[in-house]
Amino acid sequence: MKEKLEQQRTAQALYGQANDLTASAVSHYHRLVVSATLVDGSVEESQLRAELKSHLLVLADTILMQSAALFEVHLTHVRQQQPSPARDQELASQLDALKQVLSQRLPIMEYIQVAGYLNGALAQLQQPIAEADAPAEAAAPDAPLARLMASYLSLLLAGKSAQAIELVVEKARRGTDVGDLYEQVLLPAQSEVGQRWHRGELNVAQEHYCTAAAEQAIASLRQYRKPAPATGHRFLATTLAGDLHVLPVRVVAELLEADGWTPFYLGGNMPLASVWQAAVDYQVDLLVLGASMSHHVGSVRDLLAARPYVQAATQVRVLVGGPPFNADPDLWRVVGADACAPNARAAVEAARQLVGQP
Rank of each mutant, 00 (worst) to 15 (best):
L118Y: 01
M109W: 05
L118C: 05
Q66K: 14
S93C: 07
E72F: 12
A132V: 04
P107E: 12
L125N: 06
P85F: 01
Y111K: 07
P107M: 07
Q89F: 14
L59C: 05
A123C: 01
P107F: 06
L122M: 05
V78T: 13
Q80L: 14
L98G: 03
L122Q: 13
R87D: 08
L91H: 02
Q126M: 00
Q124C: 05
V58E: 04
M65W: 10
R87A: 02
S67Y: 12
M109L: 15
Q113H: 07
L59I: 02
I112N: 07
A68F: 13
R87C: 03
I112P: 00
Q124A: 10
K99Y: 00
L122W: 05
G116I: 02
H55W: 03
I108G: 01
Q89V: 10
S54W: 14
A123N: 14
G120Q: 08
Q94H: 10
I129S: 07
Q89K: 04
S93V: 00
I63T: 11
M109R: 13
A86I: 00
A69P: 06
Q80H: 06
G116T: 09
Q66C: 06
P128I: 09
I129R: 04
L102A: 10
A130T: 12
Q124H: 13
R79T: 04
R79F: 10
Q89Y: 04
E90Q: 10
Q127R: 11
Q127F: 04
R79S: 05
M65A: 08
Q124F: 10
H55L: 02
D88P: 02
E131R: 14
N119C: 07
Y117C: 01
Q126G: 12
L59H: 08
L95E: 08
L106C: 04
M65P: 00
L106W: 05
G120C: 08
A97K: 02
A132H: 06
N119V: 01
Q124S: 05
R105S: 14
L125Y: 05
S84A: 15
N119D: 14
H55M: 00
L57Q: 14
Q113R: 15
V114S: 02
A69V: 05
E131F: 08
Q100L: 14
V114H: 11
H55A: 03
I129P: 01
Q104H: 10
Q127Y: 00
Q81R: 15
Q94G: 13
G116E: 08
G120W: 01
L56H: 06
L106V: 07
L91I: 12
L95K: 02
S67C: 12
S67E: 11
I112C: 00
V73W: 04
A60Y: 07
D88W: 04
A97L: 05
S103R: 12
R79A: 12
M65N: 09
F71D: 14
L98S: 03
L70F: 12
I108L: 13
H74T: 01
Y111V: 09
V58N: 06
R87K: 07
L57H: 07
Q100D: 03
A86S: 11
N119L: 13
A97P: 09
L64C: 03
L64F: 13
Q113L: 15
D96K: 15
E72N: 02
L64I: 11
Q104P: 00
Q94F: 02
A123E: 15
L95H: 03
H77W: 15
L91N: 01
A115Y: 05
Q104V: 01
S93E: 09
S93R: 13
Y111Q: 08
Q100M: 12
V78H: 03
A130R: 09
L106A: 03
